[in-house]
Amino acid sequence: MTDNAFLEARGIGKQFGGVTALADVDMDIRRGEVLALLGDNGAGKSTFVKVLAGAHRPSAGTIAIEGRPVSLASPQDAAAAGIATIYQELALSENLSVAENVYLGREDVRRILGIPFLKRAEMRRRVGVLLDELDAHIPNPDMPVGGLSGGQRQAVAICRALNLDARLVIMDEPTAALAVAETRKVLALVRRLAERGCAVVLISHNIADVFEVADRMVVFRRGRKIAERRRADTDPEEIVSFITGAHPSLRSLEHLG
């Protein structure tokens, strides 16, 4: 079952003071698969993702990447382990070009007297190739990001993750602020990312989007993982009933909570 797992999380818990934000979460994240995390606000999905991104240290549990235990104590650790997080705000600089944004902070340089001169042609070429591979509908890597649509910006952020050789890409509500046509394109990007062999974790509130793109779904409720379903084995109604707590299997839990 875990033969294709990129990351295995076991017994992950997180306390903030006396508040339990996350309790005893087991999860496998597989290569080439889109995994959607669902749940109400405060259900724990964002906390879990922040643990993977190195932004929160778990209070309990272990994480293994490709079978080896790792400590994700900082965003740098996560990046070194091949985990890239695309935040909702995207972290793009609107005054710089697409190519400059893809490389920002990790530029390809030729050092002359210690001064990091940009290899601009090389960076443009590489970004052009990535944009083509993703079919990102951005005609020119020299375009300033300030002029791009929301979906195109997602594409730039995804390019950035790929360029960092990310093997797990975490996306937080990538379609939240997008129009319908743009949402289609971003979902296609997410699929292509998985087809390239990336593991993708997606946080979303939109059940329709999730059913279109995800291979597997995990529902969080009150800091616990309460359900895991393959898309083929479930339907939107069941997932919604898990999210809202209306599912029959949750009755006993609700009384305890």
């Binding site: 740098q76 600089s93 609107e94 005054n95 710089l96 920002l104 940009l118 601009r120």
Partner: peptide, 24 residues
Amino acid sequence: TFTAWGRWLYAMGYNERSAHLVGI
């Protein structure tokens, strides 16, 4: 214009938070 340092200065000058998030 031609170095990574310049790109970082423009990036942080325009949007400090995003510059910070990419590790500048």
